[in-house]
Design a binder for these strands. Structure first.
Lengths: 237, 237
DNA sequence: CCGTAGTGAATGGTTAGACCATTAGTAAAA
DNA sequence: TTTTACTAATGGTCTAACCATTCACTACGG
């Protein structure tokens, strides 16, 4: 009937107070908190306890702690790094399989391409074409350019995510790419033909995005990822 | 040319060591770490520093700390609570808007429904139909059943994610649903008609999944989410 | 006048040792 | 057998000190 009364530990109370102040805007990004020796007085706790609280806030990505005379705890701009990290932990720990990752990517890339097509500015188009040129250059280098090509390929995909303007896609895809590398090396049957095909896909996606053709971009991106995944499945077996 | 040598703080070193041990499976979930007073000896640090490390690990969701005689640090089963918390922070900070969330959901639900259709077992079908019945019941209760209906709706979507068998979809969608509630209350123009339409969508999705028709499930799910989002956009303006 | 090396002070990082609070198990009492 | 009280182990907190890092200022040398 009744819930157990939550017995807050001292450091949790501090975490909550500071977090709340940040959330409601009392503490704005860039703002510096008082020094530990002063904060501990304000909260009426010991320095050790205060530091446990600060470590938690740091881990949450809410503050940054700097040493030195002008140092201290500084309120951070909220970002999705943490989300990315967490997802990375999940991927590594839960023994998420290549198939899981690939399926997940399949679900995301189409939507990202479509959104990017709707929202790309002139400048975005230039960036994409620049990356495409770069990738093309690596492709011509033959074997030794492969690694660079793959990295550029990734950058193109991430650029699309950025262009989509949706922080969730950006954070999640960043995390996925950070963690899929391991698999590429083991499972992808690298060869010139595959890379050429890949490059051709990229060109088509960028073309569709530049033309603002959302649905075409979606389809090509989806097909691209699917083919890629199919290759990996083959090799895996 | 050279990168600054990373000056690890003592507590960071401890965090990394323990985290690594958990990741590579040396420390399995449920396993209990030595008591603080012993751990500090093993690491050769003070108790305060050790505790900062443990707090970080706790915040990361890797361990749980219990008080009392049989207490201590226990390695946790990895879960997506943290991911959810993070997403919550981003939303509260307006770094992620309703539109962002909705778009993201649109990207995911189609794929989930398609996978679920491919993989649903007989038992899964029963669960889905059970949930559907439950939702239908709430719908008949009129106004006072709305909340329950929405919650059941969510459970159906989460059940689909579970059936898809992909831990990434499960984790991410769980986080999204945990956090989208805030918006529902503010932006959804609840009325019988909308709920009826919603219910009809759900029935169709479940039917397609049960029939193993992946592409149809994908399309219906996508349309479902899109319509839902469109309603919210309207109300918002 | 300008640059550079040195120096001091403020701040976080770490240590040691003590005591408080919580809790599971055990022994004693009903 | 059930309840109560005690005990010991463990995390939670406190105090007080010293170490390590960084920035700003000063004094010296050009």
């Amino acid at each position: 009937m009744f819930k157990t009364v939550k017995q807050n530990k001292a450091y949790q109370d501090v975490v909550e107070q500071i977090q709340e102040a940040i959330m409601e805007g009392t503490l704005k990004p860039g703002r510096q908190l008082p020094a530990e020796r002063e904060l501990k007085e304000q909260f009426g706790i010991s320095r050790g306890t205060l530091r446990e609280a600060l470590r938690v806030l740091e881990q949450k990505g809410l503050i940054e702690i700097r040493t030195g005379v002008a140092g201290g705890s500084i309120v951070r701009e909220v970002n999705s790094e943490n989300l990315s990290d967490n997802l990375g932990l999940l991927i590594r720990n839960r023994a998420v399989s290549l198939r899981d990752l690939a399926e997940f990517r399949e679900g995301l890339e189409g939507g990202v391409a479509a959104l990017a097509a709707q929202r790309a500015t002139e400048q975005d188009r230039l960036v994409l074409e620049g990356l495409l040129d770069e990738a093309g250059g690596y492709l011509k280098e033959g074997r030794k350019g492969w690694d660079s090509f793959v990295r550029t390929d990734e950058q193109i995909h991430l650029a699309l995510a950025r262009i989509s303007g949706n922080p969730l896609f950006i954070a999640v895809l960043t995390s996925v790419y950070h963690n899929i590398h391991t698999y590429y090396e083991n499972y992808l049957p690298w060869n010139t033909e595959l890379l050429q095909e890949n490059f051709s896909d990229l060109k088509n996606i960028v073309a569709a995005v530049s033309a603002g053709e959302a649905e075409r971009a979606r389809e090509i991106a989806l097909g691209h990822v699917r083919r890629f995944n199919a290759y990996m499945e083959e090799k895996k077996v």
